[in-house]
Design a protein around this nucleic acid. Sequence first.
DNA 1: ACCTGAATTTGGAACGTTCCAAACGATAGT
DNA 2: ACTATCGTTTGGAACGTTCCAAATTCAGGT
Lengths: 343, 343
Amino acid sequence: MPRSPTGHRVTMIDIAEAAGVSKSTVSLVLQGSPLVKADTRDKVLNAIDTLGYVYNRGAASLRNARTNLVGMVINDLANPFFAELAVGIERVFQTAGYIPFIANTAESPTRQAEVLRSMREHDIAGLILCPARGTRQGDLDAIITGGLPLVLAMRRVAGVKASSVTPDNFRGARRATEYLLELGHRRIAFIGGYADMTAQTERCGGYRAALEAAGLPVDGTMVIEGPTTRETGAAAIEQLLSLGAPPTAALCFNDVVALGANDALRRRGLATGADFSLVGFDDIREARHMWPPLTTVAVDTLSLGEKAAHAMLRMIHGDSRRDDYLGDVTLMMRDSAGHPKAV
Amino acid sequence: MPRSPTGHRVTMIDIAEAAGVSKSTVSLVLQGSPLVKADTRDKVLNAIDTLGYVYNRGAASLRNARTNLVGMVINDLANPFFAELAVGIERVFQTAGYIPFIANTAESPTRQAEVLRSMREHDIAGLILCPARGTRQGDLDAIITGGLPLVLAMRRVAGVKASSVTPDNFRGARRATEYLLELGHRRIAFIGGYADMTAQTERCGGYRAALEAAGLPVDGTMVIEGPTTRETGAAAIEQLLSLGAPPTAALCFNDVVALGANDALRRRGLATGADFSLVGFDDIREARHMWPPLTTVAVDTLSLGEKAAHAMLRMIHGDSRRDDYLGDVTLMMRDSAGHPKAV
DNA sequence: ACCTGAATTTGGAACGTTCCAAACGATAGT
DNA sequence: ACTATCGTTTGGAACGTTCCAAATTCAGGT
């Protein structure tokens, strides 16, 4: 913090003295009030930048609530998907005059609790949360009862009554699975995520639904849980290919998992799309750049982010209606999925 | 913010009343002071969570300065490289008890100014900045003279005396260029970035140095500036291949640019690594997953992030020495660079 | 019962802002 | 000259915390 010659923080009072006015006048200037005479304003403005004054928003909000801070708490910033989501959200807030601050929980509920607490202590206007795996209702009800506007993004939390913005996971996964079935696959695996994440149950549910509709059994050994990382994808491939009757295709929980699976296939000398088919979820930018380009379920990340931001703004402006937005999904058919080798 | 039954924010005074003690005692409890008797502490703690009290850090820092907030301002969060950097930084702060807040400037100095102002107004303990392109000394000297601990990451700003953490851009680029020369290339392009970014002048400088050392001329039409995006990479390839004597290889400013260039080559039906060689910079995770795996200069992102965080912590703890850390670089030879086709 | 020192607890000023009610200065109308 | 009015400016209380000095309680001698 900038300090005056006498060693303490430069405050409005210092400015007032330097400009020969009262602190009230300085306050008015800072708020852009039309009441102050033009040349008084100039004197004040001058003093402000010769002294290097920095507005103390903490002190201000002590008197008058309202902040322009919005928190975005993200479970995995290293996943490009969430980075893209964050960018969509930011764009909206920026034009609305809010400053979004991002924090990463790296999928740790403990970390999430810390971050959430810190954000509330700093008196944010609202919170967009992509909950870490393992988040329970109890972790959030302090926020709910506190009346802080909350939008859940990508994942919901059982029992928590908050607005949410998610892609249509069920339909996306069912469509992807149907596509694999159309290609002729009969043994299809599902890789990644944990059954305690809403996104996983929905995606895995769509997968099961498609299989059942086709009259195929759902084989438990074909559903492999794990963190949504490359490593999970790679390990799952190893595990699946050592099965007695290995699958010929897999639907991955998301593109990052698919990336890992693709690596493992290549290491084994198998051609993705020909020897083994892979479908991802999210359609991150990398999906079309990897080799082969990944067939995946696109979720329109940017507009999902914008929807979340708009929902937030509505709540900040006093509209307390809950709203669950289900984003459109579309299957992007690229080259990582093809007909099974041995039909 | 949580409100008491009477409608106002729940404060320490409410807690004090509910617990039958004074506000001072509540304050002591909140600070974990050993002075308070165990059962008083319990009474207070109880009141706190039945009333849903939220600590008001703004009010607190009004009295006693010190914050546990650190700002991280990043010029392009959509570039996985910076996301990885952020993760490295976070890891350190987390264990040190600081909460890093991330903001994205999307390479816009205007946006950066807003974000910087907001962060200072919220009284952060320090700032790690990856400056947006076009940041000038004047944009930062309010921060410097204000005495806020500042670490510049990845890019420096001419004239700004602040600690910095950057990879050894010059050496990395020279090494990469030498490698292309060893492979037999004689016409080598440099793609991406602008000459007003320190990182670009250093990388491009390394490229020139290698060419000159080999007795080759530096051809201005072979150096293509542009934002560090995929689009730049793609457009550059189009432009370069339409030259009278097109290059046979290119060093890209970073991996994202290389990704774009690789796409453009594929669209043209050229095989990267055989028909045209590409070298990137950064070694983002995607680099080894794209096709073909990208030859690139690895910068050890994680430890760069950790170095930045440690430099920051030192400054926060009062050590005001400037420190310029130059991170090690190593060339990762993968498949996107090979011998030129027509030697 | 009384004194002493240690262990706890407390009132109040201070931090930097906002906002209200009131004051001020200039101008114009009588 | 006096008042009303308008446009500006201002003092001071309040916001929720911390921290100091002082007050209170407690236990153990005597």
